[in-house]
Design a binder for these strands. Structure first.
Lengths: 241, 241
DNA sequence: TTTATGTACGAACGATCGTGCATATACTTT
DNA sequence: AAAGTATATGCACGATCGTTCGTACATAAA
């Protein structure tokens, strides 16, 4: 129940193509539902604590810089306590990616889906993303930007998971743009894939610049870039009211 | 003597504001000049070998993932042999950044400076960058993209060096654009900082997408984006001949 | 030839890494 | 109350990390 009445175009977001970023289950507390075992409830609670800290650390120092011993020390849990919860470091990293996806969904996807499809949703999506980066939902900026840059040239399940999340996100932006086009709010010959590429480029660039140079102006730059690009292809006013 | 006759606008690139990316000395073989000591020549040679391998590894696995022991094993040098050459891991990382800057200069900056200032140089700069990324001059794509994303949220000399390089690059793109504007090839009200931000966003996005998804189309996307953006503000034809 | 200097090596240091296992504790089921 | 199950701990492992130090060797300066 995460999206409000404007959540989806009929039969559109219902399919399972968006598995990572738009999946329904929250993954973290999936095990406790319908059960009353205080042990697994407690276990899931520590798992949540671990993952929340893990994604924060990873956004700053990377998923590989994330060490189990340090995680344990910071959370005042035994090292093996952290380890046993995930079975391997790689599993911990994969769980961190999933946990980050839940947070990403909440801060970026859902606010966009709460607005009707079309140009306004395109704007809302960009705005939500920039807020998500600016407010440092993750202390190191966008988790997926950092993690993807870290793993993009490597091989293995972590890279695969991040690549899948990246594909999901790309498709989501593309469809958001394509909806606006089909609704007649963008020029008919708009290339959704091309526009989505450009919008995403602006978002990532703002994130990277802001963090590296502590420069809040970067977000204005991104907004300006988006406005310039959209102004050239909108069929009506850029902002409805 | 790296730029050709069109290298600089009078008194423009002569100042020392571009220390990292546009500096003249090559840093790696600076020590040997004017000397004939076969010992330090040999030392500089191994230093070169180490750094060339180091930047390649770092572009894939990060500057922190770069380990001295592994570097030694791959190069069949003793671990202490590698270590003594730099004194600490951090110094090795800093040297790797400088070495990468030399390569970056050769593949991106110099080809742009070899073309007269103006719109053509703007295009050349983007083209050189995209080639530099596409050809995998570093196996993991742009070294500075990877390293900056790794260190942008941390503190210390390595981050500072990367931030300085980023500033240099940003200013270089801005001035390249500003030159085109002052030469009357771009609309007079062109915001060079804004345009540079957008161009750079496209380049980085192409690099990231290409590596993560093995998608060569990303480079076409970037070129299209640049063309669209420039077409709207050029005063003459986009490509001279 | 002797003395000085710079490179590269081998061995070892303490610390930390991810991981395995036996055990203690808390809770549920019978 | 007893048996079963899941969480969390303590301890130890082998490997690797960055770093230190004494030494062997090659070249330069005396």
């Amino acid at each position: 129940m995460y999206a409000g009445r404007y959540a989806r175009l009929p039969g559109r977001w219902a399919d399972r193509s968006f598995t990572v970023l738009t999946g329904e289950e929250t993954e973290i507390d999936a095990r406790t539902e319908g059960r009353t075992d205080g042990r697994v409830a407690r276990g899931d609670e520590t798992r949540r604590r671990i993952l929340r800290r893990a994604v924060d650390i990873a956004s700053v120092e990377g998923l590989e810089g994330l060490s189990i011993g340090r995680l344990a020390k910071e959370l005042e849990i035994s090292k093996s306590g952290v380890f046993t919860r995930f079975g391997s470091k790689e599993e911990l990293q994969l769980a961190a990616v999933q946990a980050a996806a839940v947070i990403y969904r909440r801060h970026v996807i859902e606010p966009a889906l709460a607005v009707p499809p079309g140009l306004r949703r395109v704007w809302q999506l960009c705005d939500s993303w920039l807020d998500y980066s600016r407010q440092r939902v993750f202390p190191g900026g966008c988790f997926f930007f950092a993690a993807s840059a870290e793993f993009d040239a490597q091989v293995g399940p972590v890279r695969d998971a991040l690549a899948a999340a990246g594909r999901d996100w790309k498709r989501f932006v593309e469809r958001t743009v394509e909806d606006a086009r089909q609704l007649g709010e963008l020029a008919e010959d708009t290339d959704a894939g091309q526009l989505a590429f450009e919008l995403n480029a602006f978002l990532d660039a703002a994130n990277a610049t802001s963090i590296m140079h502590d420069d809040p102006v970067a977000y204005d730059r991104a907004r300006t870039a988006i406005r310039i690009r959209l102004e050239a292809i909108v069929t009506g006013p850029l902002t409805p009211e």
